[in-house]
Design a protein around this nucleic acid. Sequence first.
DNA 1: ATCTATTATCGCAAATATACGATAGGTTTA
DNA 2: TAAACCTATCGTATATTTGCGATAATAGAT
Lengths: 101, 101
Amino acid sequence: MKRSLEHIEYQEDTETLARFAKALGHPTRIAILKHLENQSCCFTGDLVDVFPLAQSTVSQHLKELKTAGLIQGELKPPKIKYCINQENWRLAKSLFANFFD
Amino acid sequence: MKRSLEHIEYQEDTETLARFAKALGHPTRIAILKHLENQSCCFTGDLVDVFPLAQSTVSQHLKELKTAGLIQGELKPPKIKYCINQENWRLAKSLFANFFD
DNA sequence: ATCTATTATCGCAAATATACGATAGGTTTA
DNA sequence: TAAACCTATCGTATATTTGCGATAATAGAT
């Protein structure tokens, strides 16, 4: 990417909303989150069984959702229990709701 | 991208939501849409003046928003007036609202 | 200490996305 | 017809994303 300008500064809300949207911008990640909404929580392995994707790929999607703050992982050795991050979920919900008027 | 499986089939809502989210997944596009919400409509040139981006770059972002169905262009020669596509806007609004519960 | 189970990370390949300048296209005006 | 105006598209460069298999890491069980 050629950038003549180091970085465009947007309003904080704009950046935050875009980051959430980007994390939601893949059907697998939407499906993962829908799954988490139903089950409330689940393990990586459960998701690997649900989707016809390699374990590493599922793990990567989970990482992105975690980085975006939409989910969080809790150690339940030897597994990891993933749940929706309620605080950021509410934030995302309100940002989208405000955005759409 | 290596795909062992041609294509994963998700629920239609999931695909649609992901497509909207992907279109919203860039701060410039969020900012463009916010601008359109305020102004109700505007021309490409107006946006080029607002953002420190090349005309071709702005045009490309507009194209993506148009492809996603979030905006529509109306010919007002020699300009093009872009407005929010109200029908899809409502659809996106409700998909996001339902998704976030 | 070793083995097992589970998940994350690394390294790679291919596809997409982002940005730019240059150019083409379409419409009005001169 | 030609010139001017506005916008889209092309070509290109670089960055990011998506996916896989292989490997590392972590914690409990043997």
